[in-house]
């Protein structure tokens, strides 16, 4: 019982980070019908931006919530800029090109960033600065609740609530949904599609930035290829929830994290990564639209 509870907490904590990254995939897909393969590298670069700014500001000497906030801010800012830049330089010139060209470009950008990071940061893993002490805050049914897990949970929850409020209750959030719904019609409202696409990349990349810091804290090893597998799993989570569907990405992420944790706990850690690919194959065969897949009912 206690064991199970501990695994549930670990799974939710991991899953909420998958969800953050999955949101970026799903939002871009919702607007551009593009699987932004470079998203996982935005996440990786966010981790390095946080790593270098933490050592520049010597944040490890002053662990605490403020240091965490600073790192989050740095990663959010850096990732947003990178995401917007990628869209502007690589995808926007191909706006009218066939989808497959853009997809290949996305893979190209992803590889470019992976190998540039290896050149500039070195290929060997770096230890992410621990800007938050991992103490036991309290126990819950004999399970110790650690400050790190709680921070991960609080930060992802706050990020998702903010995203939700923005998308559903602000003018620009509504415009974003409008563009994602009818990209040809949105300009007739005076909405600049290009600006909304940039906004999508800002939002998705910000969440990737948040995710990168949380992963850095929880699994404190970062390296230029760290986005590869993690991004793949987050992408599967987005597909699982129904690509293009925002609540779906959250559900998919949580399910992904939970099932991975359970597989490791009760089967074998050998199957940890096989799970994601197994799931992907399973979904694509049995329910390609995912759990909350878009219903494309159109009235004539």
């Amino acid at each position: 019982m206690q064991d199970l509870l501990q695994h549930l907490i670990n799974g939710l904590s991991l899953g909420s980070i998958y969800a953050l990254i999955a949101l970026g995939y799903t939002m871009v897909y919702g607007v551009l019908q593009l699987i932004n393969f470079a998203h996982s590298e935005v996440y990786m670069m966010g981790a390095f931006a946080a790593y270098y700014s933490a050592s520049a500001l010597n944040l490890e000497a002053r662990p605490g919530v403020l240091s965490l906030m600073i790192l989050l801010f740095v990663a959010i800012f850096f990732c947003s800029c990178l995401g917007v830049l990628i869209e502007f330089l690589a995808y926007r010139p191909l706006r009218k090109a066939p989808k497959i060209n853009v997809l290949i470009t996305a893979i190209g950008v992803s590889l470019f960033l992976q190998y540039s990071a290896q050149v500039f940061f070195g290929a060997d893993p770096k230890v992410f600065p621990q800007v938050l002490e991992n103490t036991t805050l309290f126990t819950f049914f004999d399970v110790p609740i650690k400050s790190l897990d709680l921070s991960v949970f609080v930060v992802t929850l706050v990020s998702m609530i903010l995203l939700y409020l923005f998308i559903f209750f602000t003018k620009y959030g509504k415009a974003l949904r409008a563009v994602s719904c009818q990209i040809q019609v949105a300009p007739l409202m005076g909405i600049s599609v290009n600006r909304m696409i940039s906004l999508t990349f800002v939002l998705g990349s910000s969440l990737a930035g948040v995710g990168s810091v949380l992963v850095g804290l929880k699994y404190p090893k970062i390296e230029p290829l760290m986005g590869l597998l993690f991004g793949m799993k987050a992408f599967v989570a987005a597909v699982l929830g129904g690509i293009g569907n925002i609540p779906g990405a959250v559900i998919g992420g949580l399910l992904m994290g939970l099932s991975e944790e359970m597989v490791v706990a009760y089967l074998s850690s050998t199957y940890r990564d096989a799970l994601a690919f197994g799931l992907l194959i399973f979904i694509l065969i049995f329910k390609p639209t995912g759990i909350l897949g878009k219903n494309s009912a159109e009235k004539v």
Partner: peptide
Amino acid sequence: FQTLTVLENLQM
């Protein structure tokens, strides 16, 4: 905009 409410459509 099918996924937006009537009011949201008008607001757009």
